[in-house]
Computed example of a mutant assay.
Amino acid sequence: MIFSKDYVGYLARQTVKHLVSEKMIHSDKVGVLNERVTNSMIEELALEDRINDEVRVILEAFQEDMRKTGASYPEMFKKVKNELARKYKAVL
């Protein structure tokens, strides 16, 4: 994940604070809401890490074929990552 968990927590608190102050949402338990938003944001931001791990596993399986054909690892990484992002409907 490109952000620290502390920073994601800060972003979540600021988001909740803004939404409450603009009366877009209402909550009697702001602490619980902050925690839920933080967890959701962390999960969403970790998606790219999970996709990268899956790409590495896929490319490891095709490592020999890539070596034989002279395929570039960075290029293949980017292509496979884009395909997985489409599969998971993720915006990276």
Rank of each mutant, 00 (worst) to 15 (best):
K17A: 10
Y7Q: 12
N39R: 15
F62D: 02
L92V: 05
D53E: 03
M76Y: 00
F77I: 00
K89D: 10
E75D: 04
K79S: 03
M24N: 08
E44W: 05
F3W: 13
R36I: 15
H18K: 13
S27Y: 10
R50H: 03
K78H: 03
K29R: 10
R86N: 15
H26N: 12
D65E: 14
K81I: 05
L84M: 04
K81V: 09
L59I: 01
V91W: 08
Q14Y: 12
V8A: 01
A85Y: 07
T69K: 00
H18A: 08
K17E: 14
Y88E: 12
L33Y: 06
S21R: 03
T38W: 07
E60R: 04
L59P: 05
V57D: 13
A61V: 11
T38E: 13
E22G: 11
I42Y: 07
V30S: 06
F62W: 12
Y88K: 07
S27T: 15
R56E: 10
L19T: 10
L33G: 11
A90W: 08
Q63I: 03
V91P: 08
E54A: 15
F77D: 04
E35K: 15
S72M: 00
A61P: 07
V32S: 15
I51S: 02
L59M: 03
T69P: 03
E60I: 01
M24G: 09
K17M: 09
R86D: 14
D6G: 05
A46Q: 10
V55I: 09
Y7M: 15
I2Y: 01
K5Y: 01
